[in-house]
C-alpha cells in the first residue's frame, strides 16, 4: 500500500497539514478531514458536485491530485459563505429563488457561480448556463439556479444593456 505523505494546504483560510496517499484526490483529502460540503457524485470529473476554488479558480477536486496542490489555497462553499460577501450573496439568492431542491449539487454549483461572478460574469442567462455547465443538477432543471446567479449579477450592477 502507498505511504501516507504530509500535505500542507491552506483550506478556508486556515493552514492545515494532512496525511494523504501519494495518489489521493483533493476530494478525498477534504472529505477525509470532514469538509463534508465537498460532495462526491461520480469521482470522475463528470458531475461537478466536488467543485472547490483552488487559488481562486473553480476546479473539480475529484480529478485534482491533492499533493499537486501543496502550498496552495483551497476554499469550499462552506468556508466561503462565512468569509466572502459575494458567496454569501449567491447562497442567499439560491435560498430566495428556490434554486435548491435536494441540495446535493448546491455547494459545487455555488462555487462555480462564485468563479463566474469573480471573473466578471454578467447578467446573461446563456453565459450563466455556460459557466455552470460542468455542474450537473438532476432536480431543478437549472431554471432557478440560473435565476439566482442572474439576480446576484444584477445586484452587482452587471446588467447587460
Amino acid at each position: 500500500m502507498s505511504n501516507l505523505l504530509p500535505l500542507t494546504l491552506k483550506v478556508n483560510g486556515e493552514e492545515k497539514t494532512f496525511l494523504a496517499s501519494p495518489h489521493a484526490s483533493l476530494l478525498r483529502v477534504l472529505r477525509d478531514n470532514y469538509y463534508w460540503d465537498v460532495k462526491c457524485g461520480c469521482e470522475e470529473g463528470d458531475c461537478g458536485t466536488c467543485t472547490v476554488l483552488l487559488d481562486g479558480k473553480a476546479v473539480k477536486s475529484c480529478i485534482t491530485l491533492a499533493h499537486n496542490c501543496a502550498g496552495h489555497e483551497v476554499w469550499t462553499d462552506k468556508g466561503l459563505g462565512y468569509n466572502d460577501e459575494i458567496t454569501r450573496m449567491i447562497q442567499d439568492a439560491f435560498v430566495e429563488c428556490g434554486s435548491i431542491q435536494c441540495g446535493f449539487c448546491t455547494p459545487g454549483m455555488i462555487v462555480a457561480a462564485k468563479h463566474y461572478i469573480d471573473h466578471g460574469g454578467i447578467a446573461d442567462r446563456k453565459e450563466i448556463r455556460k459557466a455552470i455547465s460542468g455542474n450537473l443538477c438532476r432536480c431543478t432543471g437549472y431554471n432557478k439556479i440560473v435565476d439566482a446567479i442572474y439576480k446576484v449579477a444584477v445586484e452587482l450592477g452587471r446588467e447587460v444593456r
Partner: peptide, 24 residues
C-alpha cells in the same frame, strides 16, 4: 492538471508509479 490521471488511477489503469507533479 491531473484531469486524466486521476480517472486512470481510480480505474486502476495506472499503478506502481512515481507521480511527478508539474502543475506548479
Amino acid at each position: 492538471g491531473s484531469t486524466n490521471a486521476m480517472v486512470d488511477i481510480r480505474a486502476g489503469k495506472v499503478n506502481d508509479r512515481t507521480l511527478i507533479g508539474i502543475r506548479d
